[in-house]
Design a protein around this nucleic acid. Structure first.
Ligand code: MN
Ligand code: MN
Ligand code: ZN
Ligand code: ZN
Lengths: 157, 157
DNA sequence: AACGAACTTGACACTCATTTTCATTTAGAG
DNA sequence: CTCTAAATGAAAATGAGTGTCAAGTTCGTT
C-alpha cells in the first residue's frame, strides 16, 4: 500500500501548479516585467521560507539576475497583496514563502527550514474570543511553531 | 461598588512586588552592578513592551544613566535567563517586558502598546499535538495577538 | 510599427538597530 | 587592601532594509 514514486511525482507537479502565483498585475498601472516573473518563478520553486537575500542569490545562480532592490520591492509587494506569506525569523529577518490561500500557520524546522502548513480552527476561535473579552478590535495574530523536523531529529541522535 | 483608589494603589504595589525580577547573579562569575540594578528597576516600572532604546532613554531621564551597549547586553541576558519576555515587533525590533512566570501569550495594542497577558490551555495542547503528528521534536511556539485596545478603538471613532 | 507617458529598474548612498572592539573601571573573593 | 576576572561604555563596524534618481521598459495610443 506504499504510494508509488510516480504518483508522488505527479502530486508534486500538481502542487507546484496549485502554488503558482504571479505578481499582481491586475490593477491598472501595474506592469509585467521579467524581473517580477523571475521572482515569482523562484518562489514557486522554493519550498521553504527564504530571505530576500537568499532569493536574490538563488536568482543569480539560476541565471535570472535581478537587482537586490527590486527583489526587496517585489517580495514586499507580493506580501502586501497577500500573495505570499512572511514571517519574522528569530533574528528579525523577514522570510517569504508561497503558501496556500487559506488562513493557516506554520510548523518550521529551525535546523533545515522545512515547513509544514497547519490549521487550527480552535485557535482561531480562541484568539477571537479573548480579543473580544478585552475589548480589542481590528485584531490579527501571529502563530508559528518552531522545532526539529523528523529528519533533523533523527540525525542529531 | 467602585474600587477605592487606596485599594487600587495597594494592588499596584503588590503587583510591582510580584513582578520584581533582578538580574540573575546566582551563578558564580556573575556580578551585581548598579547598571543591572537600574535596568531591572526600569523594567519593573514599565508596564508595556519597550525597546532597548526606549529603556535606555527612560533610564537617562530618570537619572540612572547606563550605556546603551550595557542596556542591550543586560536585556539580552535577562531574556536568555527567562526573566523577561521578548517579542519581535512587526518592524523586527525586539521589545522587552517583565511578565509573570507562567507560560502565557500577549494581546498587544499596536497603537499605544498596552499589553494584556492571556492564557490558552487549548492552544498549548493543539500546538503539542500538531507538532507530534508531524514528527517534530524540541518544539516551542510564538503566539501574539495584535489589535486596537478598547481605549484606542474608542478614540479612532 | 512607432511614440511617449508612466512605470520600473538597479547602482549607490544612506539609515538605524544591533554588534564588536578595546581601553578603562569595578565587584568581590581571598 | 589587593588582585584579577567581569563589566562598562565610547567609538567603530556591521548589515538588513530604504531613498534617490538617471536610465531602461512596458503598453496603450496613434
Ligand atoms: Mn490563525
Ligand atoms: Mn503557548
Ligand atoms: Zn529539519
Ligand atoms: Zn491602545
Amino acid at each position: 500500500m506504499t504510494t508509488p514514486a510516480i504518483i508522488t511525482h505527479s502530486m508534486n507537479i500538481m502542487m507546484m501548479v496549485t502554488r503558482t502565483k504571479l505578481f499582481p498585475m491586475t490593477s491598472v498601472g501595474i506592469r509585467s516585467t521579467k524581473q517580477r516573473t523571475a521572482v515569482s518563478a523562484a518562489l514557486n520553486e522554493l519550498e521553504d521560507f527564504r530571505s530576500t537575500q537568499e532569493i536574490h542569490e538563488y536568482l543569480k545562480e539560476r541565471g535570472d539576475s535581478v537587482g537586490l532592490t527590486t527583489v526587496y520591492r517585489t517580495l514586499q509587494a507580493l506580501s502586501a497583496a497577500g500573495e505570499v506569506d512572511v514571517i519574522l525569523r528569530e533574528d528579525g529577518e523577514s522570510v517569504y514563502r508561497l503558501c496556500s490561500d487559506a488562513h493557516h500557520h506554520h510548523l518550521v524546522c529551525r535546523q533545515c527550514g522545512h515547513t509544514v502548513e497547519v490549521e487550527g480552527p480552535t485557535v482561531e476561535r480562541w484568539a477571537d474570543s479573548v480579543s473580544a473579552e478585552h475589548g480589542f478590535t481590528d485584531v490579527s495574530h501571529t502563530l508559528e511553531i518552531f522545532g526539529l523536523c523528523a529528519n533533523c531529529s533523527a540525525v542529531s541522535h
